[in-house]
């Protein structure tokens, strides 16, 4: 018996999300009184692999295989399922990101293991195994019982505190014999911006809505985000109008984010937008309309025109940053 966590890497590196995932999985293993194994697929050096130990993984299994360079849902499912069987894993944990969403459901059918998708807490009970997750796009939460003996959980991002220690994990580099017939997808081209802070990773997000009135007015949004070391986002009408790229659209049908600080500027706060940001730790809203629904979810609000308020905020941030 054990707990298995799949830790994705990005060009050979782990990120905050990985450490959050391992911290959660370690707490899960402790609840079950068992050990935690982390599985890494792809080229990751030993020092980086070892870093997972600090967050509670007692063993790291690293698989490098040229055929697994790109995500193929079927092939990755086969690898993770094999590892789970070998370890007798009772709980398998993945991130609730694109990769986790691609692999977890396939794994569920392959292992006949129930999925708790997007859980945000440790189980409230082990017998029956009861997990907690947001439903109705954040308008409610549900307690869900997973009835199978093996359970698969995907962890909602920024929902669990990272716990760092100083464990030295055992590292095993495994050569994996992959059936080449499993890989049916061919990646023909990749178009990727490296080095840019991803919206889903950002701890601070400054977001603009239609209240910004024109794409030409975006400079202060970008400046404020840069000053705070954050990313920029926007509401749906803004991306639909082509004022900002679609990747920035946060909301129910766009990106769902949970930064520490979300500053909504000129966003009225339609339920669809709120569904994408409601898990943020602190929401600040700036809007001309004091009755705008965004103030129902904001912790702090300022009533005023964005183009007048933003320069003052930028100045105030510069003051504290230089102090």
């Amino acid at each position: 018996m054990s707990v298995l966590v799949y830790t994705e890497n990005w060009e050979g590196k782990f990120k905050k999300l990985s450490y959050e995932l391992v911290s959660y999985a370690a707490a899960m293993a402790e609840m079950l009184n068992t050990s935690l194994t982390a599985l890494s697929i792809g080229e990751v050096d030993s020092a980086e692999l070892e870093s997972l130990g600090r967050f509670g993984a007692s063993k790291i299994v690293s698989i490098e295989n040229e055929k697994l360079k790109n995500l193929d849902n079927q092939a990755y499912t086969a690898v993770i399922a094999d590892m789970a069987k070998k370890l007798g894993a009772r709980v398998i944990i993945l991130a609730n990101n694109n990769t986790g969403k691609a692999v977890a459901p396939r794994l569920s059918v392959k292992l006949k293991a129930g999925v708790g998708a997007g859980v945000s807490r440790l189980p409230s009970s082990l017998e029956p195994f009861t997990v907690y997750k947001r439903v109705y796009s954040g308008n409610a939460y549900a307690h869900i019982v997973i009835k199978t003996e093996v359970r698969i959980l995907t962890l909602a991002q920024n929902s669990f505190d990272i716990a760092e220690g100083d464990n030295k994990p055992e590292i095993e580099k495994l050569s994996y014999d992959l059936d080449p017939a499993l890989v049916k997808t061919e990646v023909r081209d990749v178009n990727k911006q490296s080095g840019k802070l991803l919206l889903t990773d950002a701890e601070i997000v400054v977001s603009g809505g239609r209240g910004m009135r024109s794409p030409d007015n975006w400079a202060p949004i970008v400046e404020l985000a840069d000053l705070l070391g954050g990313a920029t986002a926007c509401s749906r009408p803004v991306s639909d109008e082509g004022w900002r790229p679609h990747e920035e659209h946060t909301g129910q049908t766009g990106k769902i984010i949970a930064p520490d600080l979300y500053i909504a500027v000129g966003i009225s706060g339609a339920t669809q937008h709120i569904a994408g940001v409601s898990a943020s730790k602190c929401i600040v809203a700036i809007n001309t309309d004091k009755d705008a629904p965004v103030f129902d979810v904001a912790k702090y609000g300022m009533v005023g025109d964005a183009m007048k308020v933003l320069p003052g905020l930028i100045e105030a941030v510069k003051n504290v940053k230089s102090a």
Binding site: G116, T130, A140, Y141, H143, K147, S278, K299, Y300
Partner: peptide, 17 residues
């Protein structure tokens, strides 16, 4: 394989300051 046993509403939020 799974069953929803109960729902709850999101926690009440403090009023905006």
């Amino acid at each position: 394989l799974t069953e929803i046993v109960s729902y709850e509403m999101p926690p009440e939020k403090e009023a905006c300051r």
